[in-house]
């Protein structure tokens, strides 16, 4: 036995070291949040959690036992009190919102990073295996469409057309019933963030440091605006103005029609999430842990430092603002309009 001690210790150390180097156990994403009137659903690390929107008290979590599934994108609300959520183990799940029971209905070849969308009784789910799947609620494949690269951006369905941003630099418009391509437009860089639909155009950000406006009907580029760094987040639009941030920490306000820069605000960290536009002002998260609130002239109202790195989009729930965090202790923080903490959803022990 003594002879075996050193080799065994060496091998265990090597295994531990190599496992550590691969990042196993380290957060690879941030919480995705979906809200209804009285419930908040969040998908993060090893589960989907349902909590009361009023006070954050836990209602259920899925699955019962923590596994290696690692959820990320916000669950999609579906008819008949169902949630659709994909995991990093390539499975797409349907969960009963009342009981928290669920099942895997479909498996792809890659991770589910994009949030699926439900239109009627069809789920449109983009996978990192480059394919957009259209499936029914029982997991039966209706059609699929293969792009040239990873799909991390959420698909969007408008008037029977599925709009899909891909890392192959293209925005695709597909017939929602058949999956046939209507047009595709070269955005000039990988599309990772959300798409926004407004006034006959699709707006998006690219890793080629640009915000781009594309005509929804024919895929022609309306305009491009060059930012200081990659525009990971999709923009948010209100009253003819476009708001977004870049990975250098710059936050921009442009005119939606002709990309005229109104104002710019500089932060000290990467801006990854899409901003949230409310009556109180513009909320956005910064990687350095700050939740920033600006008024619509670009003037700072407050910057609240929260624990952990912040990447996601803030979400409104009643009078509260919900922020997902990568903090070791917390998953969600609910704040009032003044930035005071109301409740938190702690990390499961």
């Amino acid at each position: 036995m003594k002879k075996l001690t050193i080799p065994i210790i060496t091998i265990l150390l090597a295994a531990f070291f190599l496992s550590g180097c691969t990042g196993a156990g380290i957060a690879t994403s941030w919480p995705g949040i979906t809200v209804t009137e009285d419930t908040v659903y969040t998908a993060y690390t090893q589960g989907v959690y349902a909590v009361s929107a009023a006070n954050g008290s836990p209602l259920w979590h899925y699955p019962d036992k923590a596994g290696k599934m690692t959820f990320f994108a916000a669950p999609a609300l579906a008819p008949d009190d169902q949630l659709i959520v994909g995991d990093y183990s390539n499975s797409l799940h349907v969960i009963d919102t009342k009981t928290g029971t669920g099942r895997s209905i479909f498996t792809a070849e890659g991770k589910w990073i994009a949030q699926p969308i439900v239109d009627g009784d069809i789920i449109y789910a983009a996978n990192a295996d480059r394919i957009l799947y259209a499936i029914d609620m029982n997991g039966n494949l209706k059609w699929k469409f293969e792009t040239g690269s990873l799909l991390w951006s959420n698909p969007m369905v408008i008037d029977g057309i599925v709009y899909l941003g891909a890392m192959d630099h293209y925005l695709y418009a597909l017939d929602a019933k058949t999956g046939q391509q209507v047009w595709k437009a070269d955005a000039g860089g990988a599309i990772i963030g959300n798409l926004v639909n407004a006034n006959g155009s699709i707006f998006l950000g690219t890793m080629a440091n640009e915000a781009v406006s594309i005509n929804k009907t024919d895929g022609k580029i309306n305009w491009r605006f060059t930012a200081g760094n990659a525009v990971w987040s999709g923009p948010a639009i209100k009253d003819g103005f476009l708001y977004f941030g870049d990975l250098d920490g710059n936050f921009y306000a442009l005119t939606e029609s002709d990309r005229k820069l109104l104002w710019q605000y500089k932060t000290d960290g990467a801006i990854v999430g899409t901003p949230l536009l409310t009556d109180a002002g513009i909320f956005f998260t910064v990687e350095n842990g700050n939740l920033v609130l600006l008024d619509y002239t670009g003037k700072l109202i407050y910057s609240k430092t929260l624990n952990g790195k912040l990447y996601g989009t803030p979400v409104v729930s009643g009078e509260q603002i919900l922020v997902g965090t990568t903090d070791k202790e917390k998953i969600l923080i609910a704040l009032d309009s003044n930035g005071n903490q109301v409740w938190v959803l702690p990390q499961p022990k």
Binding site: G23, A27, T28, S29, W30, F72, Y88, K111, I113, W152, M167, G188, G189, A190, I192, T206, M207, A208, N209, A230, W232, L247, A270, V272, E287, Y311, T326
Partner: peptide, 23 residues
């Protein structure tokens, strides 16, 4: 994954390699 890609963008020398070509 998203955070891994964000980390990668921070390690690329600006001016030496183009993120838009690599990603």
């Amino acid at each position: 994954s998203p955070i891994e890609l964000l980390n990668l963008t921070k390690h690329i020398y600006p001016g030496f390699l183009s993120i838009s070509q690599i990603i």
